[in-house]
Design a protein around this nucleic acid. Structure first.
Length: 675
RNA sequence: GCCGGCUUAGCUCAGCUGGUAGAGCAACCGCCUUGUAAGCGGUAGGUCGUCGGUUCGAGUCCGACAGCCGGCACCA
């Protein structure tokens, strides 16, 4: 006999090897009917599985959040059957559950198109309606290989071969159709329900490797109810409305054109945003960093020394004199990174241990030849500006420097309303430079710092490890922030580098007069300013806080009788430091309000004959229908107060929660900027 | 880079199976002096992404290239 414990704490005894379904039936017929799976000691399993030992048991109904994964997974199987029924000769490969849905990869000579969706979905509904039971068999490796090979399923044979020998090889049937699958599944196809939709087709490499053949992937979404599906589709529409490419056009921020794939034409308003962001970052660097500027193009030999020419040549732009008769036909590379330039600045003149830590910052424009398919609005471009810095320090200073950068990054994100942050430590990749000993050392230091970061954040940040994701010259921290609609973006990075200083022969003179190699820390907060602005546009949905908004205020007249007053108001606002224009066009106020609302102007000041006489303004804020009448001076004073950047408002200090905690020394004993 | 799709006026889009391009908004001109998300009328605007092919004839069919979109791969 075995003892099963139910969620309410009740315990019951059952014979050995009792199936979950039998247990459910022993409690209530209705429960057996409602249950789609069970959780044994927290692990979701098939209802048909036999329980052989004492355990906690819980039945999972279709409404249970854990059922969503089953619905999606089953739906993927139904999709695969539908496709193989409609298009004989199509091979099935894998079909996992992903965020919000699932996909299935197929091998077929002719790729699918969205036009095929209607027919496939109809066939899927048929299969679901037939409500065929999912049944499981365990096969031997040889039998599975033989059966799949016999069906011409070469990819499945490969999958079977890849399953570790100690694992059971499970086959799930749904009627006659079957698939190799880890499970678990619901009792029958009918449980999938009708809240699913095929979303898109795409190419995808077999096993994610670009050297392998390309398969056709069909993406689908599936939910427990129609309402959930509708809600999800609505969310997608809302996300589309805040697409930075769309808002960039609508708000007249920037554009791209054919002659410059992946390079941005910033319009006046977009550039205003860009400059506000740069100004903010400069203020945050004040006192700690020296801002520098390294050349845009440098002889390729320098990139050979740094290692970039060897690793990344395919992704670099090179330039040469355009004249046929030019005496100097050397190749110069457009800088893809700022670090080699900063090392040259460090190396210029002898550096003493007293100079360290030396923090060189640059808003450096870099160019990288990104693969054509990788480009995406501002998010992935070929020319971009990094808020880059390199800290040259001693081994002993390394941990403190990483923590200091951590504080700067987290407090910066907080100023833009990003509160959910994950810090990931990426460790040595396969393709790398430097000895294993130096990697061991760097990773050990970083791991300690990561613990510190977690401890100091008091639960405000999560940490994780990304094995094998480090840069070729050293391990790195990656800062991932979550935006207003829950999407994650990797922006900041702190990378420890023992290699570049060595390659360039950088050194400082230590207290004992000997030459020592500095440790170099690469660090970026926004990463790419272009991309960070893209993220901000989407995060704020174009509705920028006043301190960032390129056009803060529009003064709108109701009739031409208020034109003079409107110009007076605009002039006063401008004198107060606000970015303002007067709209005295001969249009109805409804027209002007609509137009400026579409343009996402945060503040509309409406003035008519009455306001002119009373010297007031009618304030209408973006996103609200409400209007408030205020005296001119009072209204302007409030707007000026609101348009102060958050760091300026707190007197350039670190926010209180990011003040250095006890025991952590954040700055050296000296201030290098004073020397 | 790979797979698929798309490219018509400044923007959003229509244009059936080939017969030589159309709407709304925007722009410009006029009327309207207007009270919080589109007042009315008129005018102008396109070598239909580029190049090549098929055809008596191509926005429409075929091919190449480019750019963009959705994925995949990549992301120092």
């Amino acid at each position: 006999m075995i003892t099963l414990t139910f969620p309410d704490g009740a315990q019951r005894e059952y014979p050995d090897a009792v199936s979950g379904r039998a247990v459910a039936e022993s409690i209530a017929k209705s429960l057996a009917k409602k249950a789609v799976a069970m959780a044994i000691d927290g692990e979701v399993r098939d209802l048909s599985d036999e329980i052989r030992a004492d355990a906690r048991i819980e039945f999972v109904t279709r409404e249970d959040p854990r059922a969503l994964e089953l619905i999606r997974h089953d739906c993927a199987h139904v999709l695969a059957e539908a496709v193989q029924t409609l298009y004989p000769g199509t091979q099935v490969t894998i079909g996992p559950v992903i965020d919000n849905g699932f996909y299935y990869d197929f091998a077929r000579d002719e790729p699918f198109t969205p036009e095929d969706f209607a027919a496939i979905e109809a066939k899927m509904r048929e299969i679901i309606k037939a409500d065929r039971p999912f049944t499981k068999e365990v096969w031997s490796r040889d039998r599975a290989k033989e059966v799949f090979a016999g069906k011409g399923e070469a990819f499945k044979v490969e999958l079977v071969e890849a399953i570790p020998a100690d694992q059971d090889l499970k086959i799930y049937y749904q009627g006659d159709w079957f698939d190799l699958c880890r499970g678990p599944h619901m009792p029958s196809t009918g449980r999938v329900g009708d809240a699913f939709k095929l979303m898109k087709v795409a190419g995808a490499y077999w096993r994610g490797d670009a050297n392998n053949p390309m398969l056709t992937r069909i993406y689908g979404t599936a939910w427990a109810s129609k309402e959930d599906l509708e809600h999800y589709l609505h969310q997608l529409e809302e996300a589309e409305k805040r697409d930075h490419r769309r808002l960039g056009r609508e708000m007249d921020l920037f554009h791209f054109q054919e002659e410059g794939p992946g390079v941005v034409f910033w319009h006046a308003k977009g550039w205003s945003l860009f400059q506000s962001l740069v100004a903010y970052m400069r203020r945050r660097l004040e006192g700690d960093y020296d801002e520098v500027n390294a050349p845009q193009i440098l002889d390729k030999s320098l990139w050979e020394t740094s290692g970039h020419w060897g690793w990344y040549r395919e992704n670099m732009f090179a330039a040469q004199s355009a004249g046929d008769e030019a005496e100097d036909k050397r190749w110069f590379a457009l800088k893809p990174m700022n670090c080699p330039g900063h090392v040259q600045i460090f190396k210029h003149g002898l550096k003493s241990y007293r100079d360290l830590p030396l923090r060189l910052a640059e808003f450096g424009v870099v160019h990288r030849y990104e693969p054509s398919g990788a480009m995406h609005g501002l998010m992935r471009v070929r020319g971009f500006t990094q808020d880059d810095a390199h800290v040259f320090c001693t081994e002993e200073q390394l941990a403190d420097e990483c923590l200091k950068i951590n504080d700067l990054i987290l407090s910066t994100y907080a100023d833009f309303g990003f509160e959910e942050i994950v810090v990931k430590l990426s460790t040595r990749p396969e393709k790398r430079v430097g000895s294993d000993a130096s990697w061991d050392h760097a990773e050990a230091v970083m791991a300690r710092v990561l613990e510190d970061i977690e401890r100091r954040a008091g639960g405000r940040v999560k940490t994780a490890i990304n094995p094998g994701e480090g840069a070729f010259y050293g391990p790195k921290f990656e800062y991932v922030l979550r935006d207003a609609i829950g999407r994650d973006w990797q922006c900041g990075t702190t990378q420890v580098d023992f290699n570049l200083p060595e390659r360039f022969g950088a050194f400082y003179v230590d207290a004992d007069g000997t030459k020592k190699m500095p440790v170099m820390v690469h660090r970026a907060i926004c990463g790419s300013m272009e991309r960070f602005l893209g993220i901000l546009i989407e995060h704020y949905a174009g509705h920028f806080p006043l301190w960032l908004a390129p056009q803060q205020v529009v003064v709108c007249t109701i009739t031409s009788e208020a034109d003079d007053y409107a110009r007076e108001v605009a002039a006063a606002a401008k004198r107060a430091g606000l970015r303002v224009v007067a709209d005295t066009r001969n249009e109805k106020i409804t027209y002007k309000v609509r137009e400026h609302s579409h343009a996402k102007i945060p503040v509309i000041l409406v003035v008519g004959k009455r306001e002119a006489a009373e010297r007031t303004v009618n304030v209408r804020r973006l996103g609200s229908q409400a209007q408030t009448s205020q005296g001119l001076e009072e209204a302007l004073a409030a707007l000026v107060a609101e348009s102060v950047a958050p760091d300026v408002a707190r007197g350039h200090a670190m926010p209180a929660e990011w003040q250095p905690s006890e025991g952590v020394q954040l700055d050296g004993q000296h201030d290098h900027a004073m020397r």
